[in-house]
Design a binder for these strands. Structure first.
Lengths: 358, 358
DNA sequence: CTGTTAGCGCATTCAC
DNA sequence: GTGAATGCGCTAACAG
């Protein structure tokens, strides 16, 4: 780096013996400026290596054309994809995206919101941290600019949101397991009272009820549902008098942990225990057997969130009720739950992948 | 959203019957301001819901405290992790990060650089797009602010960079395969002339040479190394008169494609064909068998990149030669390449995971 | 079609 | 210790 570009519209103005305002207008393609001056201005701008100063423009008309997005962590596939989805839409209409991570830490989240407000972003799209129970920082944000929550939301805030139907995901995948002939279906859920997990659990219990299968509290295991937790939970289940014939984990990691334990114990998947996860993490299609799971439509969620958000942004201060968009999750059926196929021909087990694209 | 916060330092000044400058100083903790006024100012600020306007401040002193980061795509684990690594450091010292995606598209990349310059970011950290061959946009950026490249860099620019030693990664993993007894080792590489792939290839050939194994061009397959390419490449290899006894793919996806084909053909891994990838994608530890691969140290790379970058930023216009930091990759040995173990006891194959943590 | 004037909110120089 | 004045770079009335 060297001579920080100091060329301003004034420089190019004096070079052409016109005013800064004319230059400004020419640069902004104002129809009231003659083609000749526009051309001249553009040429001079190029020659001088002029680089518009968006900060000044932003200060002037109160819009930064930057939006903030807050996610617990940016390196989880789901959030990364949503960010990408948002960015796609934002860029198309000339907005930049500032990405912030809350690390699921309440204080960090609060500070981040304030930092974004100070940065004068034009709006915020966020997914709430796991441990957040007080939402006053978001309420404050909401008073000043458009706010939209996705995935991890709350009903304690009157705010637009985009979520997937976790209940439906949980219901459909449980139903799928039942259709495969499973009758003792275990469930891994979170110990935290996060709504997405509560909903998945509700889908699970509801599906059981609708199919006349008694709910058994012993089959519901709470944990953080990481890989290790999945292992521990599975091991706990294996100590029960009556073993489960399926496990539906509300997280793919938990399901993978269970898969590992089952394979170590030579318990056949899905013949003895069928497995299903939730999230459609990339690795689920590569596991052996590939894991049945629920897709979160992450990029779409980002797209939809951004679209809804910008709609709201353009509406400005006009009245607009918070909208809630619910995306329908898709269940991805893979071998880990295809019990029926094996009922006919058990030898198939070692066949490997039937259909990765399922 | 409703009454956009209009409280400025003037509002709080008039409330206290002092001047804006005093307020400004108080807020910035200027030592020349009495404790009493500071307290009063802070109190009033809070009462009025004052939110500093960073845009104005940025315009005033020419620093936005925002840095831009350009990655091909934000939803690939590697880049997402680097972004996270950068953000961790940046946040600690009061910087925000604008994330931009080039989608490996040259024009997008150029526009992005310009957009960031206009946004008046204080610097740029970037990983070059696959198809970029002209670097004038980065050169332009470099003239105005600190620039640092990571992972995908170029020697056509005198710029600080953080990379991993791809040669070493390629060398060590090839050597590992040789140590496992492999003698006909195939290699999947990219058709593009990207330096990271050239280096991995060089590591491969060098390792062969150092161990007296003849290089066979027929064993080097070029492709984009996605899952499908891996399948195609593996199938091509299987048509050779003399089969390879190992495949080292410069991408984990390619290796996974190969794994699928091998499993479908009932060719045992690693006994008949050992497999190794590159990148340590999350799924590699979940595959069956788990895939031997090279770890990219993504978060560290982000941390290191950020640290080097901010060093450079603080140095300001002072002379500082571009620095090149080379991180040593770690090879992660998993079952897909542990041929020796199976030489003793072939039955072990079905044992499942030996050590996921390898 | 173009120039004049003014100000966005803040930080800083120079006063006192 | 505090106030007054100025300008960062740009845009938007209001003139003409």
């Amino acid at each position: 780096m060297a001579g920080k570009s100091k060329t301003t519209i004034h420089d190019i103005a004096s070079k052409l013996n016109i005013t800064a305002s004319t230059v400004s207008r020419a640069l902004n393609n104002n129809p009231r400026i003659s083609e000749t001056t526009k051309k001249a201005v553009q040429k001079a701008a190029k020659q001088l290596g002029y680089q518009p100063n968006n900060i000044a423009a932003a200060l002037r008309h109160g819009r930064s054309h930057i939006i903030g997005i807050i996610v617990p962590t940016a390196d989880r596939t789901f959030f990364a994809s949503v960010v990408r989805g948002v960015e796609e839409i934002a860029n198309k209409i000339g907005y930049k995206v500032i990405i912030c991570q809350s690390y699921d830490n309440y204080n960090t989240e609060v500070q981040t919101v304030d930092a974004l407000l100070s940065a004068r972003v034009d709006g915020i799209i966020a997914s709430i941290g796991k441990n957040t129970e007080d939402f006053s920082h978001y309420k404050r944000a909401q008073e000043k600019l458009p706010l939209l929550l996705f995935d991890r939301t709350t009903d304690k805030l009157e705010v637009s949101q985009v979520v997937i139907d976790d209940f439906l995901g949980g219901y459909k995948i449980t139903e799928h397991l039942i259709e495969q002939g499973c009758r003792r279906i275990a469930h891994f859920t979170s110990s935290k009272k996060v709504s997405i997990y509560k909903e998945r659990l509700r889908g699970y219990t509801e599906a059981l009820k609708d199919h006349g299968i008694p709910f058994d509290q012993a089959l519901v295991v709470e944990s953080n549902m990481q890989l290790e937790d999945g292992r521990t939970s599975m091991e706990a289940l294996l100590k029960l008098d009556q073993l489960p014939d399926a496990v539906f984990s509300a997280s793919d990691y938990g399901a993978m942990g269970a898969m590992q334990v089952l394979k170590e114990r030579k318990i056949r998947i899905p013949q003895e225990v069928a497995l299903a996860g939730f999230m459609n993490e990339p690795f689920t299609s590569f596991s052996d057997p590939p894991l049945t799971t629920v897709d979160q439509l992450s990029i779409s969620m980002g797209n939809v969130a951004a679209e809804l958000f910008f709609e709201q942004l353009k509406a400005g201060d006009k009245k607009h009720l918070p909208q809630r968009t619910v995306l329908k999750p898709e269940i991805i059926i893979r071998q880990s739950s295809l019990k029926r196929d094996y009922a006919k021909d058990d030898k198939e087990q070692q066949e490997g992948y039937i259909s990765l694209k399922a």
